[in-house]
Design a protein around this nucleic acid. Structure first.
Lengths: 108, 108
DNA sequence: TGTTTATATTGCAATATTACGATATATATT
DNA sequence: AATATATATCGTAATATTGCAATATAAACA
């Protein structure tokens, strides 16, 4: 045990969960917010900005990238990371849909 | 190590991360979607609906409740769980804000 | 070429999560 | 009261995550 039973859920459910999971850490939220704030960024900036070691940040960036939340392009010596709007849109749609479905309904 | 350095991040960042983390598992996404689908209350139904044992589902429900994503009221023998709209709204606002901030910006 | 700068990878210890059987609790029903 | 039904909690094994020092890689610059 300890393994998530991925195969029992739909692809969409797994995808949303994967994105949400990537956002499920304050450091990664802080990274996203920093990228939004400065509008594009370089990894080393974040290293100076957050109270975490460089390898840790590199790892968090990798996870965000893996989930499709950010994308990075090599810019000579450094890497320019920025938000992937497509994935943010997916989240927007997802929660908008849920919100619409539950509104006007009586419950608990 | 292994401990998330919560204290180094803002309260808001930690809150969003906590909500996202709760959604970071396909079973919990499936639970949310099931509640939305049947509109309102679930109880033992969900145990029959998902490929997980009852204690596991109970644990997942606890986490969703803890993150404020669902709320439950005791209904005699059973418990009525439903979506907490407030938290869904928070997520909507959060991603809308990010989306607005990154639109019209040139990057990577 | 040698050095600096920026980022990634590896390896590992500490901790957290996932899943479930066994068991507890608590209301409903007989 | 005894039993059934619904849900929660405990204990624990398997696995995943977090964080970092050490090290690797790779472009920029002297």
């Amino acid at each position: 045990m300890g393994i998530t039973k991925t195969e029992h859920f739909t692809e969409k459910q797994n995808e949303i969960a994967l994105i949400a999971k990537a956002l499920g850490h304050p450091a990664r939220i802080a990274i996203i917010e920093y990228i939004v704030k400065v509008n594009a960024c370089i990894c080393n900036d974040i290293v100076n900005e957050l109270p975490l070691a460089q390898p840790t940040i590199s790892q968090h960036l990798k996870e965000l990238k893996n989930a499709g939340l950010i994308k990075g392009s090599i810019e000579g010596n450094t890497i320019c990371y920025c938000i992937d709007e497509t994935t943010i849109s997916r989240l927007q749609n997802y929660f908008n849909t849920i919100s619409n479905k539950i509104s006007n309904k009586e419950c608990c």
